[in-house]
Computed example of a mutant assay.
Amino acid sequence: MSAHVKKPGWFTVNVFNRLVAWLTRRGISVWGSRVLAVRGRKSGQWRTTPVNVLTLDGRRYLVAPRGHVQWTHNMRAAGGGELHLGKSVDPFTATEVPDADKAPILRAYLKRWKAEVGVFFNGVGPDSPETELRRIAPDHPVFEITPAR
């Protein structure tokens, strides 16, 4: 597994993420945003962060543009979580997508959110060759999410 992590800066943590989370908690989705809640792998406490949910070919995915960050480690341990939009709570299970299968998902994610997250993909964009998408795949965890039963 790659150790790739791009930690957010002060503005992202203290202004942007808080604003997006605040709007999303009130039912206003910013370009498909949701608040991800996942149990901490050590504490067991719920941890939250704003995320973008990608729908591709009828399947839903969470992509970690900043790499192997805390929510991805927690997701691996918990095997799922909840997506919040306003008062709506959607529990889900998560399956990590193998690196070999990520290229079309990363391409679609970058097509939708490149303006917001493109800087974290080291120059790789939605129009990059497949080989470039495969090269960066280990740096960006992807989880397929399905509704919990």
Results as ranks from 00 to 15, higher is better:
residue 32 G to P: 09
residue 55 T to Q: 13
residue 65 P to H: 05
residue 83 L to A: 05
residue 18 R to Q: 15
residue 27 G to Q: 12
residue 24 T to I: 10
residue 36 L to G: 12
residue 124 V to T: 09
residue 103 A to T: 14
residue 17 N to V: 04
residue 22 W to F: 15
residue 145 I to F: 04
residue 114 K to P: 03
residue 52 N to M: 14
residue 13 V to S: 15
residue 118 G to E: 08
residue 62 L to A: 09
residue 12 T to D: 07
residue 15 V to M: 03
residue 74 N to W: 04
residue 133 L to D: 06
residue 46 W to D: 11
residue 32 G to F: 06
residue 77 A to P: 00
residue 105 I to N: 08
residue 13 V to N: 12
residue 140 H to G: 09
residue 113 W to E: 08
residue 7 K to N: 13
residue 6 K to I: 14
residue 63 V to D: 04
residue 114 K to I: 02
residue 88 S to G: 13
residue 40 G to Y: 06
residue 67 G to C: 09
residue 142 V to I: 10
residue 145 I to P: 02
residue 63 V to G: 02
residue 120 F to S: 10
residue 16 F to C: 02
residue 110 L to Q: 07
residue 104 P to Q: 04
residue 52 N to P: 00
residue 93 T to Q: 11
residue 149 R to I: 00
residue 51 V to I: 13
residue 31 W to I: 06
residue 133 L to T: 10
residue 109 Y to K: 05
residue 143 F to V: 05
residue 27 G to H: 07
residue 106 L to H: 04
residue 45 Q to R: 14
residue 53 V to H: 06
residue 26 R to M: 10
residue 143 F to N: 05
residue 35 V to F: 05
residue 7 K to S: 14
residue 1 M to S: 14
residue 6 K to Q: 15
residue 48 T to F: 01
residue 95 T to D: 12
residue 114 K to C: 01
residue 126 P to S: 12
residue 35 V to W: 03
residue 68 H to P: 06
residue 65 P to N: 03
residue 136 I to L: 10
residue 8 P to K: 10
residue 103 A to M: 12
residue 7 K to A: 15
residue 139 D to H: 14
residue 47 R to V: 02
residue 20 V to I: 15
residue 78 A to L: 01
residue 41 R to H: 07
residue 93 T to A: 09
residue 126 P to C: 04
residue 92 F to I: 04
residue 106 L to M: 07
residue 74 N to C: 02
residue 33 S to G: 11
residue 41 R to S: 10
residue 18 R to M: 05
residue 19 L to A: 15
residue 129 P to V: 07
residue 56 L to S: 11
residue 83 L to Y: 04
residue 15 V to Q: 01
residue 137 A to Q: 07
residue 43 S to Y: 08
residue 108 A to F: 01
